[in-house]
Amino acid sequence: MATGDDVRRDVTEKAAKPIDLDQDLIAIATSQDQGAYQRVFHAIAPRLKTFLMVQGTIESIAEEILQETMLKVWQKARLFDGSKASASTWIYTIARNAKIDRFRKETRLVPDPNDPSYIPDSPETGEQSVTKKQESNHIKEAIATLPSDQLRIIMVSFYEEKSHTEISEELGIPLGTVKSRIRLAFGKIRNELKGVS
């Protein structure tokens, strides 16, 4: 996770902040905006490549996955719904699915809202005043409260996309401990988020 300093440095380097990504995706969707596409590309592609290479993907395949991801971002931009997910989360899921599709026989299994058996979310009861931008700040604050042993597992799981077994071997702790730390961490994160909304 970026520290406060990293975030400020990102801003000075004109990296797209989550809020800009949202606007750029909408511009891509509504007017096939070339400039917006390039901003998203420069914000996402180098980070995604780094992400993939940290996870052990060889460079040529990392390039393929990021090209596939950016192609899908362009193609699917009109399906983006900012009320359901932030732009960064939407792009992340596209990238992760592109990676899984590249390495697995089976495409990623997801529930389908068009399925007649699907049970939709009940209408939000809470106030909708918390924007996605505020929400991601709250999430960062909640993560910052985690003890270091839990934080480390969350980081390795998300950034390096390691399995529980791999984490257990790497850290030399039992598999059950990995799982219980994950459960404790999310319990705490949800609790913190409940406190602010």
Binding site: T50, S88, Y92, S136
Partner: peptide, 20 residues
């Protein structure tokens, strides 16, 4: 959705280390 938000934060706020 919360976990995907967290994963996305790790992605967009990471330091890029490779040229594309």
């Amino acid at each position: 959705a919360l976990m995907e938000d967290i994963a996305a934060l790790y992605l967009v706020e990471s330091e890029p280390a490779y040229h594309v």
